[in-house]
Design a protein around this nucleic acid. Structure first.
Lengths: 305, 305
DNA sequence: AGCCATATGTGAGAAAAACTCACATACAGA
DNA sequence: TCTGTATGTGAGTTTTTCTCACATATGGCT
């Protein structure tokens, strides 16, 4: 039940940092100490353990074989402590749920609805972080990831919220200028330069297939890094963009964009993917958020805001 | 490459001991501190981590769920450090090779030969510990175990040194009294009370089988806990004992015992079983010892001493 | 209910540990 | 040989940790 007395843990920390970083000076910087402090701690540790851990070659500290093995174990132990601390901070009472999604989803759909979310679920403490990657759920410190993706049936830590629907959008001024009437089903889109994103080059071809249009006839125009810029460009009248309905519904509602050809469902789903080791509190919060999002997405369009 | 700053490790040690032992007072005893010191450290840690780890129920400290998870990780980390320290102490330069064998083997064969061993291999630092169990090789802090056992072909960390040979031995005075001539092959052993050990009850039946004697005819007399006492009893003339040749060769040489019926090989071998994670130095030392033992055991009997 | 044994919390000051500074030492490479 | 970089150390300071003594809380026992 009882354990052998541990060596001085302060000394151990200095030793481990030195071993890991390869020099006492680097360890001193890393621990915000002077090299003298490190040097003393290492000496003290060697004396306490009764064996040298480094061999001194002039101004160079080289780990002995046993010292290396010992240092590796210490690193392992400290990594465990460090990870435990992070977990504790993530799971502690009152800690916010940390969520990621792409900047465009955050800016164009979530942020406009946060006031309503806050008023309907005032207890829910959330922290949104934008992350353009498709899979950031397992990331350090991220509790869950909201993303359009094709669901993985094997993943039990995901919640499917809505079907992705994509469609071309255009500023009304540009539509008028081009002679496109809202609601027109014409294929005139083919004659226009199509704005697109570099992060999702398959969007236009995908849409074309859904509408039975030969994708080779598409004339791709300017590309943008992210959907967010693409939609700004569309609103500014730079051309025809393609986007998930969710991200343009506000713009359409307010008349900044129109979607003359409507939207078509894709195989992707708006999915909430959570890490597997969520604490009980976080899991509860996440469920509440999922419920709210699901309810919100089920509302008829005009009242979604 | 760099790591998050660790929490105060002194505080962590106090917390972990408290969590593990279930009380601050117990932790204080365990760490040779006062309960006040523990109490302060825990408070400091909770303040540093920004979350309570215990819920206070009057005079009782109860871990919160997150605190429990955190404590478990800390215990794991400290266990690693503790184990690493033990390993370091075992493998450090100049550390003796720690060996075990039974008390009888140690007293009746090894100790009489240690002077010769020390003079022939003066560099070899050994520490012999008696242990009556058959398998002590994986034991904490034990490098190797010297034992009569039936070898396990799958074990690569064993070295077979000699075949076990067992036979009945008797004090010459008693032999004379009973009318037994040395070298006699008679079955008169059957009429005598046979001294035996409780730790190895199969020795006499085994021998009887080797000589084609019906083991039911054996009349077991007084039993002793260990071979060591058995042999003392035999030398004192209490009856006929059975023992490995190795353990009585000195006594036979000096005339304290005789072996009228000789010795017969069994399936057991004198085997040096080592732990699997020996350091390079220890492995080298063990090889030297094994070589020496093997050479010694290969010598003709009179010069083995 | 009252009391006692047990366990934790805390203020003040003592003790110990850890740290810094400044200088010393040691080497590698220009 | 000189210079830049890295570790070692004596002396003194700062910070942390600990103890003591007392306070507080409570669970079980009579």
């Amino acid at each position: 039940m009882t354990r052998d007395p541990l060596p001085s843990l302060t000394a151990l920390r200095a030793f481990e940092a030195t071993a890991r970083l390869g020099s006492a000076s680097a360890a001193a910087d890393s621990l915000h100490l002077t090299h003298g402090a490190i040097s003393r701690q290492i000496k003290a540790l060697e004396s306490e353990l009764g064996t040298p851990l480094f061999t001194r070659h002039g101004r160079r500290l080289v780990l002995s074989a046993e010292g290396q093995a010992f240092a590796d174990r210490c690193t392992q132990a400290f990594d465990i402590i460090s990870a435990a601390r992070r977990t504790l901070e993530r799971t502690r009472e009152g800690a916010p749920l940390v969520l990621t999604c792409t900047g465009s989803l955050l800016a164009r759909w979530l942020i406009p609805r946060l006031p309503r979310l806050n008023s309907e679920l005032p207890e829910l403490r959330l922290h949104w972080v934008s992350d353009e990657r498709e899979s950031a759920a397992a990331e350090q410190d991220i509790d869950a990831h909201l993303v359009f993706t094709e669901p993985n049936p094997a993943n039990t830590h995901q919640r499917i919220l809505a079907t992705e629907r994509i469609g071309p959008v255009i500023a009304p001024q540009l539509a008028a200028q081009l002679g496109l009437a809202a609601g027109s089903a014409s294929h005139s889109v083919l004659n226009q330069p199509l704005l697109h994103t570099l992060s999702r080059p398959q969007a236009w071809p995908q849409w074309a297939r859904l509408y039975g249009i030969d994708e080779k006839e598409l004339q791709l125009g300017q590309g943008f890094e992210h959907l967010y810029y693409l939609l700004e460009a569309a609103e500014a009248g730079l051309g025809i963009a393609i986007a998930p309905q969710l991200l343009v519904e506000d713009a359409i509602e307010s008349g900044r964009l129109i979607a003359p050809w409507g939207f078509a469902a894709t195989d992707a789903r708006l999915t909430l993917i959570s890490r597997e080791d969520l604490g009980a509190t976080a899991q509860r919060q996440l469920n509440e958020l999922g419920n709210w999002l699901e309810a919100m997405l089920a509302l008829p369009l005009p009242s979604r805001r």
